[in-house]
Design a protein around this nucleic acid. Structure first.
Lengths: 152, 152
DNA sequence: TCCCTAGTTGCAATTCATTCGCAACTGGTT
DNA sequence: AACCAGTTGCGAATGAATTGCAACTAGGGA
C-alpha cells in the first residue's frame, strides 16, 4: 500500500497527491474512456499484484459489461507507455502493478502466494559491479526471492 | 559451456565424468526409453537454454518421429525430479537447462537474446541477510539481469 | 456547440503453447 | 519368456492472450 519496505534505512516516499495513474495516462496522451477510467481506478487501488482475470472481476463489479479483451488491451497499452509493470512469477500467471517510481524487488511467500516488495540499495550496487565486471551495463533487472515466513 | 563465470574468484567445478543427465535420470528411477535417451543427449549438449520447440527440432534431427508432446512430458518429469530447471524469461517462452549442481543467476543480453550464467557469493549472502531482516528464510530465488554489452 | 476521425470497444473467432485421454507399445524386473 | 506400470503417439481439448471487424466515442478543431 505504501512504498516497499526499505532495507537498511527508509527513504521519504511522499508522492504528489494528483500523480495518479489516471493523470499519468492522460499526460501520456491516452484516451480516457469510461472503461479505462474504471480499470485505472482498480489498478491504483490494488495492493496486491493482480492478474487480468482479477482486474476484470473487480472492474465488472463497478461497471459491468467491460469485456476482458479490453482489459488485456488496456494492460498492453499501459505497459507500452511504462505506466504499469508486467510480472511473471513462477505460478505462471502474468500479473501487474502500477509502475513504481522507485525500483523494487519482490519476496514471494511460497506458502501463501503473497507478494511483498522490498528495496536494497546494496544489492542494486552489487549488481552494477558484477555487470560491469563482465562487460555489461544493466538495462533492467528482476530479483525474486521465494521465501517462507520464519516462525518463532 | 563450462560452469558459470564466477564473480570474485573461481571455484573448482570439475565434475565426475559419468555424472551425466542420463545417469542421474537412471538413478532417479526414470525409465530410459529411446526417446528419452535422445532428449537427454540433446539437453546435455545444449549450451544455450533451449525451449521445447528447439529441443524437439534437435531431437527430430537425430531421431525423427518423436512427438512434441513427449518432449513436453519429459521436461515435466525431469523437472519434477530436479534434473533440469525451468526458466521463464521476459520473452515469454519457457526454457530449460540441466540442473546446475551449483546455483547461478543469469545475464540476458537484451540485444542478442543470449543468456549468460554467473555466480556471486556476495549477492547470495546479501539476499539471506535481507530475507532474515524481514522475517523470512529463502526457499529459492531468481535473479535476472537484463543487460547490454558495453562497447569500448 | 457540433463534427470528424483516430483511437477504442465488444464480440466472436483465432492463435499459440501446453495438457490430456486413450489405445498401443516397451523397458526392465521377476 | 511373460508381465505390467510407465511411456508414447496422436488428435482433441484447454486456457491465456490476440486479432479482425463493425460499431462507437473522446476530445481536438472548425
Amino acid at each position: 500500500m505504501g512504498g516497499p519496505a526499505r532495507d537498511v534505512y527508509d527513504r521519504d516516499m511522499t508522492g504528489s497527491q494528483d500523480d495518479t495513474l489516471l493523470e499519468r495516462s492522460r499526460r501520456s496522451g491516452l484516451r480516457i474512456t469510461g472503461q479505462r477510467r474504471v480499470i485505472l481506478e482498480v489498478l491504483e487501488g490494488a495492493t496486491d499484484h493482480p492478474d487480468v482475470e482479477e482486474l476484470h472481476r473487480k472492474v465488472s463489479a463497478i461497471e459491468p459489461g467491460v469485456n476482458i479483451a479490453t482489459v488485456y488491451r488496456t494492460m498492453n497499452t499501459l505497459a507500452e507507455h511504462g505506466l504499469i509493470e508486467r510480472h511473471t512469477f513462477e505460478d505462471g500467471r502474468t500479473r501487474f502493478e502500477p509502475a513504481p517510481t522507485d525500483h523494487h524487488d519482490h519476496f514471494i511467500d511460497v506458502d501463501t502466494g503473497e507478494v511483498i516488495e522490498f528495496v536494497s540499495d546494496e544489492i542494486e550496487r552489487l549488481q552494477e559491479d558484477i555487470a560491469r565486471k563482465h562487460g555489461f551495463e544493466i538495462v533492467s533487472h528482476k530479483l525474486e526471492l521465494y521465501v517462507r515466513r520464519i516462525k518463532d
